[in-house]
Design a protein around this nucleic acid. Structure first.
Lengths: 352, 352
DNA sequence: CTGAAAGCGCTTACAG
DNA sequence: CTGAAAGCGCTTACAG
């Protein structure tokens, strides 16, 4: 068994190849009995159609490409697995491509997308150049590919909104909730760790921090620019390593006056908390720490991390829904889905 | 641009389709100048061959399937990304398939493999039924698929060794190193968390624990069967949740006498350490804890986790090498690669 | 070294 | 409802 072809299947069933094809594809205009007989025989012999020949005729590939850039967080992996399942149910295979952070990215992505002739593409996580990107140009280049694209967990990348759909946690609101939480506990001197460069204002870290600041402003507090911790590893902003190294260097470089530390995500928070610990700063007694994402690592960290928990399943499902709908109807207008996260209190936060 | 076909390319270059094909595929018997001209034109017009048509003729798919079962650890994701890159360099696309833990697995895998007509398959991480599996039968079924298969980070699954290649950290030796480390520090009463059922003796947790036991035995200590912590979540053995819930339940169920806790992996160790912490057991003062894998989460955990660091890059590279070699020569004998991990001391371990 | 032609395994008008 | 035939875009013997 294994390599039967439709011709042979048809011969065994005593029908023409075209009839067998009709049965296999559940087409109209075929006798129910004939269809069932062919289907049964196909199953019996373990016939599986040649995907290449099929897509050559149909000229519609049944695979979706998921592109991850840089170091993926467990959150992205969870999303990926749900996407894979959802696409699978809809009859699409999922192909993963990984783009290194530093690779010239439009060219890389173009190659991936064109080589594969994919039915659709999901950009999972951050997509863009760490240094600076003419995002409008990038957006137009991607639009030229004429493939349905959905950005997943990537917030507003100015200009992109209009040309592509996106699904993301509401970073700004999440930040706001964290900021309100800290403000309520009396925190006024708040440091930020995990920031990228000033050019990347649309990135998730910037939206999250903006939300925190808005809540603080509403509580009558203002942020001290000296409390923006520079990122030690700009190439991997959202890692434990960056959180750790950034705080370590920052504390070593001068006396710091702050009662709370807002990290761009849970991983950065964990690294930062470790650096605080090594420097003799007790969390939360001397300094409160917050994350963002709601990863297991934060739940089991000692002290348990206060954070915004992302509704991963909802985000993934929405992404699949939007992409599949766009594949079915390419003229469908783009859609920006923003999903509210949930404030999860933790042991890492205490009154100022 | 975008959808040029070889026919058009040939017309523009003033050659026959067959000549264009020869140029594109770097075949013998073509004038160097003609070839260069065709290649240049192809590049200029952004010609990209139709993969379906190509593989229909060649009947050799250029994609490799990576199958992950259950909840993937960050370690597996790192391996996956390196595999993707290595396969990409060799001209293969990588398709990811995720198999839920509980799904009837040979049938599932068979469907994945046959539908895709893959050039090769990597099983990443655990592969098998949590409850019980006739591994010999499974092995024979997989062999029937007649596709090059490499098991990556899956240790000996009895019977498989002979039919398929595998690449894995040396779990037994790693366990031995951990056991020797603990024994040297005077630990004699050692508990184990993260074990699966008795039927799964070939699984990584069993090999690791066996290594620890061997080192202890060599030091004159014997393991108390009462110190085998039952897994609270048999369906997701290697998770923080399992570590946490298992220790929590175990401590609640009776007085325990132990000075060290060996976890099946870092994630389990972190969850377990958190449960110890909540129960008032201080790590490492009252109890030493060890992990396995060398994940970032352990490096930043407080206290920093003693563990065996897996050489992830080596493991991934070896996997790619073996699979690509097997694809190139299907008659190639199977190969079992065992790579030594490195003992990484941590703050989670102290003298008994 | 180059071209015309066959064929990879399928699907789909087009006739019957 | 069924069958014979064309053709999807490529590669590869086979002639020249």
């Amino acid at each position: 068994m294994g390599d039967m072809m439709i011709k042979e299947l048809a011969r065994i069933c005593g029908v023409a190849v075209s009839t067998a094809s009709r049965a296999l594809n559940d087409r109209e205009g075929i006798n129910a009995e004939t269809r069932d007989r062919i289907l049964a025989t196909a199953k019996q012999y373990g016939y599986v159609p040649n995907a290449s020949a099929r897509s050559l005729k149909i000229s519609a590939n049944r695979t979706i490409s998921v592109i991850i850039q840089g170091e993926p967080s467990p959150l992205l992996i969870d999303v990926l697995l749900i996407l894979e399942e959802a696409f699978g149910k809809a009859g699409f295979a999922t192909t993963l491509s990984h783009v290194p952070v530093r690779s010239a990215h439009f060219a890389t992505v173009e190659r991936i997308v064109r080589d594969g002739k994919f039915a659709g593409v999901v950009f999972l996580g951050r997509y863009g150049d760490a240094q600076s990107t003419d995002s409008h140009l990038l957006s137009m280049q991607l639009a030229e590919l004429e493939v349905p694209i959905v950005f997943c967990t990537t917030s507003d990348y100015s200009g992109l909104r209009s040309t592509h759909s996106s699904v993301c946690v509401d970073d700004y609101s999440g930040g706001f909730d964290l900021g309100a939480h800290l403000a309520e506990l009396g925190h006024r001197k708040i440091a930020f760790v995990g920031a990228g460069s000033a050019q990347e204002q649309g990135q998730v870290w910037a939206l999250r921090f903006a939300g925190v600041r808005a809540a603080l402003a509403q509580a009558g507090a203002q942020v001290d620019q000296d409390l923006m911790v520079p990122s030690a590893l700009p190439g991997e902003l959202f890692t434990m390593d960056n959180g750790y190294r950034s705080i370590q260097a920052w504390l070593a470089a001068g006396d710091r006056d702050f009662t709370a530390l807002v990290a761009s995500c849970d991983a950065v928070a964990v690294g930062a908390a470790r650096a605080l610990h090594e420097a003799g700063v007790r969390v939360p007694v001397d300094c409160s720490v917050t994350g963002f994402d709601g990863l297991n690592v934060g739940r089991y960290f000692i002290p348990r991390l206060a954070t915004i928990t992302q509704p991963i399943a909802e985000i993934a499902q929405a992404t699949a829904r939007v992409l599949l709908a766009t594949i079915a109807d390419p003229e469908r207008p783009t859609e920006q889905v923003l999903i509210r996260g949930r404030l999860t209190e933790g042991e890492s936060v205490a009154a100022a």
